[in-house]
Design a protein around this nucleic acid. Sequence first.
RNA 1: GCCGAGAUAGCUCAAUGGUAGAGCAAUACUUUCGUAAAGUAGAGGUUAUGGGUUCGAGUCCCAUUCUCGGCUCCA
Length: 587
Amino acid sequence: MKKPPKIEILRHSLAHILAAAVYEMLPDAKFGIGPAVENGFYYDFDLPRTLIPEDLEILEEKMRKIIKANYKFEKANISVEEALKDFKKAKQPYKIELIKDIKKENPRAKTVTIYRTGKFVDLCSGPHIDSAGEINPKAMKLAKISGAYWKGDEKNKMLQRIYGVAFSNPKELRQYLAMISEAEKRDHRKLGKELDLFCFSDLVGPGLPLFTPKGTIIIDELQKHVESICRSYGFQKVSTPHLAKIDLFEKSGHKQKFGDELFNVESHHKQNYVLKPVQCPHQIQIYASRKRSYRDLPIRYMESNKQYRDEKPGEISGLNRVIAITVEDGHSFCRLGQVKDEMKNMVKIIRDFYKSLGLWGKHWVSLSVRDYSDFSKYIGEKKDWDKCEKMLKEISDEMNLKAIKREGEAALYGPKLDFMFRDTLGKEIQIPTVQLDFATPKRFNLNYINEKGKEENPIMVHRAILGSYERFLAILIEHFAGAFPLWLSPLQIEVIPVSEKYNTYGQKINSLLLASDIRSIIRESSESLGKRIRAAQNQKINYMLIVGEKEQKSRSIAVRDREKGNLGVMKIEKFLEKIKKELKDKK
RNA sequence: GCCGAGAUAGCUCAAUGGUAGAGCAAUACUUUCGUAAAGUAGAGGUUAUGGGUUCGAGUCCCAUUCUCGGCUCCA
C-alpha cells in the first residue's frame, strides 16, 4: 500500500488525539470514524449529550496536553475474534460494525490493526506518526461541530462530527485562516446585499431570489454575451413555457429521475401540469414539430429560461442552490458524422466564454461516465453508451483537455465532459458541460430523412455554458470580489461635481454618457467630495468623474479609476473613446 | 429531510426577567468642498410570526417561518 503524504498522516493522527480527548471528557462516547480530509481532519462520535462550542476549547486543551505528554502511537495486530471481543467489552458498536465489514469484504482476514494512544484504542489501518509530540500544537485548531450520518447514509443515525484544521506549521495555519476570512469577505450573499444585486423575501419563499435592477443588469449582460458567442457557432434562440403536462417528462424519463423534486401544478380544468425541471424535452418538441431533412442538420437551439426543482429545504443556499433556476441551456441535433465537430465547437464556446472572464485555465475536465455496476439508473442502450464514451475520450485527446475519467457521474441519457472549477474556498464546482445523448432522440422518435429517403434518428448534444445564472452570478461575485469588469458592472460611472455649483455641468456629462449607452449616475448631494468618492469606491463603480471649475472651463473631466486612483484630467471625447475600447476588448 | 446555531431600526451590532440603544445609511438644515467618512437636528421598532409561563418577556418554554454551519443531494 502506498504511504500517504506526511501531512495526511499527521492529520489522521490528530483525529485519534481528538478521539482520545473526547474519551477523556465523555467516557461513554461511542466512536465512528476519523479520517484526514482537505485542510484537516474530523471524527464522528455518538455522544450521551450534545456538544456546545465551549466543548471545543476544552477538547483542544486536552489535545494539547496529549501532544505535550508525547503519547506513543502503539500499533498491534490482533485476531478478528479478539478485536470483536475487546470492542464489545468497550461498548463500541460502530467499531464492531466496521470489523464485520472488513470480514465481509475479505473473508480470509484473520487479524485487524489497532492503534493505542494513551488509554484510547482505535481500530485503524494507519499509518500514524510515532508519537503525539511530532505535532506542532500551534498548527492545529478545532473548527466546528456538525452532524453527519453514520457511513454517510441518511437512513443511519446522525452522529456528532468535530472538524479540525491542521497544517505542518503555524504559518500555514495562519495562511489558511486568512484565506477563509478573505473568502468570507467575498461571500456572494454578503456582497449581494452590500451591492444591492439581489434579495430574498420571506413571503416569496426560500430559494426564490429576487434580482434588483443592478443584479438584473449583470444577468442580462451575461446572457447577451453567451448568446452572442453561441450565435456565432450557429445556435438559434428559442423560448418555451415553464410548465408542461407530466406526459412530456414521463416520456423523457425525467419524471422517474426527479421524483418528488418535480413541482406539480394543479389546474382547475382537467389537465394538471408540472413545472419543467429541465429544458431539453421542450426544445425537442420544437425539433419534432416538423419534418427534418439531413440537409437541415445540425439544428442548434439555445434558451435562457427558468426551470424548477423542489429541493429539500436544507439544500437551499444563497444563489448556489435555488428552486427557480435560470439556466442557459442548448442542444444540437445532428448526425453521427457531425457529432465530433459539434462537441468540439461546444468546447470552443466554453473556452471563448471562460477566457473572456479570465477563468479559462483554472479548471480541469471530467470525463463523466456511467456507473458500470448499475445500468438501471440510465436510459438507452449499452452499445450506444460505449460508443459515446469512446468518442468523448477521443475529443479530450484531440483537444488536449486531459479529461479525467469519473465513474457514476454521467447524465441520465449519456456520458459527458464536465468542466470543473473551484470557488474561493477551494470547493469544486461543475459549471459547463457537454453531453452526448443517443437515447433521448430514440425515446421521442425524433428523425430526419437521410440521403436515401429513409428515416434516421438524430443524435443530441446537450451543452450548458454557464449553468444556472444564479450560481454563475454567485461565482462571479466571489471571483471578482464584487468589482466587476466594465462590461458587467451594473454601475459603470459616477459623476461627482466638486460642489453644487458644478451640478449643471455634471448633468451634462452624465447625459452624454447615458446617450452613449453607458451606465452612469450623478451624485449631486451636498456631502463632501471625499465622502462621495468613498461611497462610490465601496459600490465598486469602475470610474468616478470629478468635475469642478477647471473641468468646466476646459470641457473635460478628472477621471478616477476604481483600482488605479486618479488618472488626471482628460477631454470627454477621449474618455468616451477609452471606455468604448475597454468594452469592445472584453471579448 | 437530518444534527446544531441563530433571527432586535434599511445595514452592522448592544441591552443580569424590570422604560429597547449605538454607529453607519436615509431625511432636513448648515457647509459649497479637488480624490476613501464635514457639522447639527429630528425621525426611524408590534424585538421574525403565533401561543404559553410570569405582577412584568427582546430575554424563559412550545410551535411555525426564515437564515447560517454541516450531513445527504445537486446545476
